[in-house]
Design a protein around this nucleic acid. Structure first.
Lengths: 191, 191, 191, 191
DNA sequence: AATGAATGAGGATTCATTCAT
DNA sequence: GATGAATGAATCCTCATTCAT
């Protein structure tokens, strides 16, 4: 019997290598060979496990979103009071794992890709829905229009995120600070 | 008036064709031949006038930014009072010429491209600086920290912009509304 | 009786799967994996038993020729008189086992392959020799030139066979009829 | 202005190179690069003019059929009386241009290909229809059932053709002789 | 015996770019 | 200026084959 159970290991290595390569390249213009080499295997094996470049990309995207969802879940679990919950979500969005240059690069490229790839679009819409939903819940009772406030905060988060893509990679703290400030402004009227 | 050479006409046609093709493709994966054909000429001529694909892209980007700058200039010229100026800038950012699907597509792709292409990065940084600067000036005297408020509004604008890239193409009005609302919130304390 | 090893069973399964796959594909463009999967085993095992793709093909060809030879032998055994023998050979050539779409496909592809593969060429030449020889014997005494008549009938059989490859798969009866008619024409002068 | 009118020259060179390569290889397993090189150009140009390998093959097939049709047309033009016409058709089928090894190889491979490729199938059906139709016309009045006789002769021609694919390349004369003999046998009853 | 992992060569196809006319 | 011919590098993907277990 051959080495068994390599599939999850290989897939994981490929997904991580994909994000790293996209980060290094700053775009989706990475070859399967580059990805496979970084993951320590042949390009043929990458195709064997994923079927094609598209599926590799989609898996990478899914990975990023899963990691992001984890970050949010942990943050919410640690947050206790209502007041902390919205801030926790904001902080999670700028957590190091989400704000790593490679992740930002990959995220941005997937945004562009979503305009052609139905799978990517679906995943990004899912992300947006979750973020809005999480924020809306966290803001309930703290402002007169939690939905609008959530929408605004979500846009603010994305805006700082996209701006970070062009800036030096240490802007996370500033972004958190300003977004949290906005959070306070938006909830002041309900206090 | 002397008869003009074809150069400016050709270049202009190519730039517009480039944006249209990027918009249609939803990515930078457009060929020089496609662009040239849409512009009604041969691919060889496109190279003749621009030297290469990169330069065509850069010219297209420059064109978008120029158009955007125009939009802002006109809006500011029409706005009279201080109070109107910030709102005018916001409205300009969501003007139809900036919010056309093709333009959004092109804009997003250039954002990604900026991570590799020094020229693109420089141009986008220029845009960001101008937007911040314009907003800061418009907010002077209306809030205690015009710089921070400008930063926040700029991020908000970009955030709504990027979100629009994934949504149906009629979200401009909502985006304007919410951003202007935030503008009011941010300047309320100074009133 | 000792328990038989798996080898003959596996080889037989692979040979049959090969013919089925070639029939389904309509060409030799079938992968070892497809064949192995249809035969219910891994591709590695197929190599283990045959050594390579070429040998698998050659075994499949040999199988078809053996089946064909069987068909002829049975037909000749059942035929009694001289007059029946030639007709029996003709009928055997259009027997269902030889005229199945998959078999026709495989046969045709092997014909093409014979132009490169010495093994295939040898096998097909063997088939041709046997058919001519069988017919010549069957025609002895029934026509002035049994060799020429055999040659003609053999070509006629192959001609109808190749034509059947392009037609709907129920042309066997027509082919038999016309070939037998020719048989009668060719032997009439000796009657 | 570039060299004009290269397209027909290039296409013709590619078609001829394709037949030559198929003949040399004895199968369709020839690469576009091989074909292009033999035609004296780059593989890219071959794609430029034909769009893909399939289209190159189809053009080659069309070329063979056109050449064959020419051969038949010329032969019929030269033939005067009714009696000569059928024989002329038979001779045309074994003319050197049709019976060249490369042509036979190509023809056989296209037969196989027809089982998958609708275009190839259509072309071969066209050939079959024409041959039958030509023969039927030529046999009218010379036998009681011209249709059946035509069918038989057509199969005989194909049969000798396919047999020639496996034999030494000088069997044309024998094939003509035997087919013409059959022609006489088939028309004797009407004399 | 049997599996599935793993490789890597090879091929179709695309496309930016160059060039002769 | 303008064209389209022409190139060839680059890339995705397939698959026969080998190998460790």
């Amino acid at each position: 019997m051959p080495k068994l159970g390599m599939e999850p290991i290989r897939r994981d290595a490929l997904v991580k290598a994909t994000i790293a390569e996209i980060g290094a390249a700053g775009s989706l213009d990475v070859t399967v060979s580059q990805i496979a080499q970084r993951a320590g295997m042949s390009s043929g094996l990458a195709h064997h496990y994923f079927g094609g470049k598209n599926q590799i990309f989609e898996a990478a995207m899914r990975h990023i979103l899963r990691e992001y969802a984890n970050e949010v879940r942990i943050a919410l679990a640690q947050a206790g009071s209502h007041n902390d919950r919205a801030e926790a979500i904001i902080r999670a969005n700028f957590a190091p794992s989400c704000f790593a240059p490679a992740t930002i690069s990959a995220w941005m490229t997937f945004y562009v890709r979503a305009q052609n790839d139905a799978g990517a679009l679906r995943l990004l819409r899912l992300y947006q829905r979750r973020l809005r939903s999480n924020l809306t819940h966290a803001l309930r009772g703290r402002t007169v229009d939690p939905i609008a406030a959530a929408e605004t905060l979500a846009a603010l988060i994305d805006g700082f995120y996209i701006r970070a893509a062009l800036a030096k990679p240490d802007g996370a703290e500033d972004a958190v600070l300003m977004t949290v400030t906005m959070l306070h402004v938006l909830t002041r009227d309900a206090q």
